[in-house]
């Protein structure tokens, strides 16, 4: 049936504007912006339902207070005052920013050479390389965290190896249940988020620019600093933000590997919604964390665009 209908409608599809369509149809077809929004509509509605509404609830709740099992809905800034008065919250937020910053820097530094290698020195089977590099993502995050627990553990892989070659006679205790354990795990788990954007920006670099730099007398190192690195900056910035923003609020890694000194703000927020049973305080902390992340992300974006403006 569809096949029979096809010639007629194909004709019609070929010259749709000339046919009478009513005022609405004409409006719709003339305004490109309207059509764009029409296409975006499903995504926009989904964003509104999935992000804006919960965010609104979070903001509203942060101005309320918890009394026992009930929530007092009168407006107050008490939670924010408490968050600034009690040193524990500031310490946890600063620690989260520091740990996630360290993990981000480590990830980008470790992944840049990998991306560089794939972009410039792999000529066959690039796709295979990229797939292999994202292997950590093939297993569940929880499993990866547990894998690190066995690697870093008291009688784990590293300690057993060091002890069997006689470098140490007591297991290294700082490996597990510490901030370094969390940073190491985050740096490994988020590696694909650094490799892929950096690879894409390196891959896009016009190779003739590199030849030109060599022709004009730059050695490999100067060529890298003056041509390759600046041109791959978008990838580095994208990787930084992609890793930093989600890891600040990470919860499961510090919960399993952090020990008492590796607790992050995400764990405190979870406690507020869990056994402390103070949802408004949890909402307040979540919003403060969001603001901190936004400030850091904006600083990175504005800072780099300033640098770019100065360079050109």
């Amino acid at each position: 049936m569809a096949d029979i209908a096809e010639p007629a409608q194909a004709q019609q599809a070929a010259r749709p504007a000339r046919r009478g369509r009513g005022a609405n149809g004409r409006l719709f077809y003339r305004h490109e912006r309207l059509r764009g929004y029409g296409l975006l509509m499903p995504a926009l509605l989904f964003m509104a339902a999935g992000i804006l509404i919960p965010f609104g609830i979070l903001v509203t709740m942060s101005f309320w207070t918890q009394t026992g099992f009930d929530i007092d809905t009168s407006f107050t800034l008490d939670n924010y005052a408490k968050a600034f008065e009690q040193p524990v919250y500031q310490t946890l937020i600063l620690r989260s920013l520091y740990m996630s910053g360290a993990a981000t820097v480590a990830t980008v530094l470790l992944c840049y050479p990998i991306a560089y290698f794939v972009a410039f020195h792999v000529h066959r089977g690039k796709m295979l390389w990229l797939i292999l590099l994202t292997l950590p993502f093939w297993t569940s995050y929880l499993l990866r965290v547990f894998a690190w627990k066995t690697v870093l553990g008291y009688n784990g892989v590293i300690n057993s190896a060091l002890m069997s070659v006689g470098l140490i006679d007591q297991p290294l205790e700082f490996l597990l249940y510490s901030q370094s354990a969390v940073i190491i795990t985050l740096a490994h788990a988020w590696a694909p988020f650094a490799i892929l954007p950096i690879y894409v920006s390196l891959e896009k670099i016009d190779r003739s620019l590199l030849e030109a730099a060599t022709d004009l007398g730059d050695g490999p190192w100067r060529r890298f600093l003056r041509v390759t690195l600046p041109l791959s900056a978008p990838g580095i910035i994208a990787a930084t933000l992609l890793i930093f923003i989600p890891t600040v609020g990470d919860y499961i890694t510090p919960a399993l590997l952090g020990g008492p000194d590796g607790v992050m703000i995400g764990n405190m927020i979870q406690m507020q919604f869990g056994r402390i049973n103070d949802w408004p305080m949890g909402a307040t902390l979540a919003i403060i964390m969001m603001i901190c992340v936004a400030i850091v992300a904006l600083t990175v974006i504005v800072g780099t665009s300033r640098l770019k403006a100065r360079a050109s």
Partner: peptide, 22 residues
Amino acid sequence: MDVIDHLAAVRRGRLSRRAFTR
């Protein structure tokens, strides 16, 4: 509204951009 056989139209390269957008 007309019923359009999109698959056939795409196959023959006769689906306009507007129809596709719609």
